[in-house]
Structures are given as structure tokens and as C-alpha cells.
Design a protein around this nucleic acid. Structure first.
Lengths: 172, 172
DNA sequence: TATCATATGTTATAGCATAACAGGTCAAGC
DNA sequence: GCTTGACCTGTTATGCTATAACATATGATA
């Protein structure tokens, strides 16, 4: 029931991450380039499976289930069992190159690798699109609430469900 | 892999929701009383299964997996198949009497039913405790970020992972 | 009392995720 | 060179989470 099964209007998967048309080849290249400059220093080892996994996420430009990624990897000669995909995805998430979208049981490439960001995700229930936005103020507000009860925050997940600009007003 | 399997220190499940000892019978009663006043008006129909499900969540005072709730229900003569638990839990969530904690694939009773609140959850990785806090400022910050890209937020999930006061400083 | 909406229960199955083990690669140090 | 250890990849097997589809019951209403 991730993001790829039933009520998937023709637009799904397109215009997703940005809710707007854009130079996707460019934004994908940007991310890869940034990752390239990060890898050596930050102790990130982009092995073939990991790199390919990241590329697959960037190509689809939306949230993908682990098994969907696995299918792609297997078709390209990598292992065909779940741990192959989960390990690569977990590694990317662990190192800030991808995010896990819990509401969708899915994963998406990070659009701002390297920036120490606290992303907020917007999931459109109309087109299944996904947008990632930096949200330092949100993080600050959460920290404040945590401080009030003496809790120390290590990781934060903020996901919203609603309608993107394109899907509003059309009963979607 | 919810919150009840392996590294579960003896304290788990205790002192959970509040990260502090408290009059649990009291807080449980409070919630039930508030629910009672809500039910008639708000179109909430607390059938036996639903009521019992809510009570079970309140008793354990922590996040519970659906199958864990199901075991309890089955032992008390209710249906023994997954949909029984999921339907009751979904209903409670839908009507604001419980929350789904996605990071744990689990559910927890709402501690502030009726208040139109936007809760933030704090999950302690030391003792698996769970705290719910109102966080209007967080909601506001998220709305602001959403507005910037024209997204309209319908539901919001904010979960954090970290250490509760009791687990800090003891290498937990 | 017939009808519709809602609720409960069932069987069966789909979808997500990890444990545990085996083999391979590569660099550090003897 | 060779051994050792860290890390990566791959496998088999299994477990946990969740829902679809169908059957029965109950209660309000026309």
C-alpha cells in the first residue's frame, strides 16, 4: 500500500518531489555531484549497489518501496533477495543520502545531501507526489517541546498528508 | 520489532507515557471520563470491542502492536483475527482517541482526547517509553513551510527518537 | 416488516522487514 | 607472501504488519 498501487492518477510520479515541472536531469545531476564531493571526506563508501540504489531513487523521483527498488536491482544483475535492497537503503538513510517515509513504507533520495537539514515531507494524497522541504523552524519548535520535558532528541520525523497545489480544487 | 521484543530493560512499559511516575489509575480514569463526555455528541460510537481496545491501550500505557492488542481481545472472547484489532484501532485513531506511532508500527491511547491538538511523540530508545506532548508551535511551523510551496496540510505526524530524562547519562 | 447502514467475525493473502549464515574483497601487519 | 580482521554482498528462511473479500448479525428507519 505504499505509493504505487491503486488510485494512481496518470500524473503520479511526475512532478512529485517539487510539485512543479523542472529540469529533472539537472536536479538529479546536482545531487549526484554533491554526493561525489561528499563521499571521500565524510566516510561514505558508495559501492556499486549503493550507488545504483541511489540513482534509482533519483530517477524515479518519488518514494519507492524496498521491493520495488529490489526489482530494479535484481534486473540489473545485483542480488535478488530483500536484504540486498534493505541494506543499501538503510546505508543511504544512515548517511543522509536518502530518507525513509514511514507513512508510505517507502524510501526517497535526499534532495539536500550534506546540508545538516531537518526535512519535512509533504505527501499529496491526490497524486502521491512527495516534496521535501528544509524546516529548521520546525526542528526548533520540536526541540523546545522536548526541552520542556527533559527529552533529548536524536532523530526527528515530520510527515504531512494533504494536497499539493496541483491537486487542490479538483476534488482529488 | 515494535516496542516489545528485545532490548527491553525492566523499566520498559513503566513510566512510559509521562517519563515520570504518576497516578496512572487517575490519568487513565481521566481519559475515560473525558471520552465518555465526548462520545454522545461527537458521533463517536464506542462499541464493546472499541471500548475494550481503548482500555487495553490505556492500561498498558505505552505503544502496543496491533497483534499484541489482538491477543488481549481474543483472550477476552472477542474475535481473534487481525481485522478485529485493526478495525478497532483504526476507528480510535480516526476519531482522535488513539494515535498510530509509525516508527514503532504501534498504537497508543491519546492522552488529550477532545483537545484539538497536534501531538508530538517522544520515543525513548533506552526504555521504549513514549511521551505525547501538545505542540501547537510545531504545527504552526509546519503550516508555514507548507504554505511556502502551496501545500495544504490535512494530517501531520511528528515523531522523535532520543533519550528520556531517566535514560540520559546512563549510557542507555 | 423490509431495507439500509453499520459492525463483527471469518478465511486467505499480500506486503514489509530482518535473522542467520556463507563466501568474497581488500588493506594492515607480521 | 600470508594471515587476520573489517566490511560488503549474496543466500535461505522466517517473522511481523496489514488488508481484501466475504458472511453474518444488529439496530435504526421508512
Amino acid at each position: 500500500m505504499a505509493s504505487r498501487k491503486k488510485p494512481e492518477p496518470a500524473t503520479a510520479g511526475q512532478g512529485a518531489l517539487a510539485f512543479a515541472s523542472h529540469d529533472h536531469a539537472g536536479c538529479r545531476g546536482d545531487v549526484l555531484a554533491r554526493v561525489a564531493t561528499l563521499s571521500p571526506g565524510a566516510g561514505i563508501r558508495l559501492t556499486p549497489v549503493r550507488r545504483r540504489t541511489l540513482e534509482i531513487l533519483l530517477e524515479s523521483h518519488r518514494a519507492m518501496g524496498a521491493y520495488e527498488v529490489l526489482d530494479r536491482l535484481a534486473a540489473e544483475g545485483f542480488g535478488s533477495q530483500p536484504p540486498v535492497a534493505y541494506r543499501a537503503l538503510d546505508y543511504l538513510v544512515e548517511h543522509g543520502l536518502a530518507h525513509r517515509i514511514r507513512r508510505l513504507n517507502a524510501f526517497a533520495a535526499c534532495m539536500n545531501p550534506g546540508d545538516d537539514h531537518s526535512p519535512v515531507f509533504f505527501i499529496c494524497k491526490g497524486c502521491n507526489g512527495l516534496a521535501e522541504a528544509p524546516a529548521r523552524p520546525v526542528r526548533a519548535a520540536v526541540e523546545a517541546a522536548a526541552g520542556a520535558i527533559g527529552f533529548s532528541v536524536e532523530r526527528m520525523t515530520v510527515e504531512t498528508l494533504g494536497l499539493c497545489p496541483g491537486c487542490q480544487g479538483q476534488g482529488a
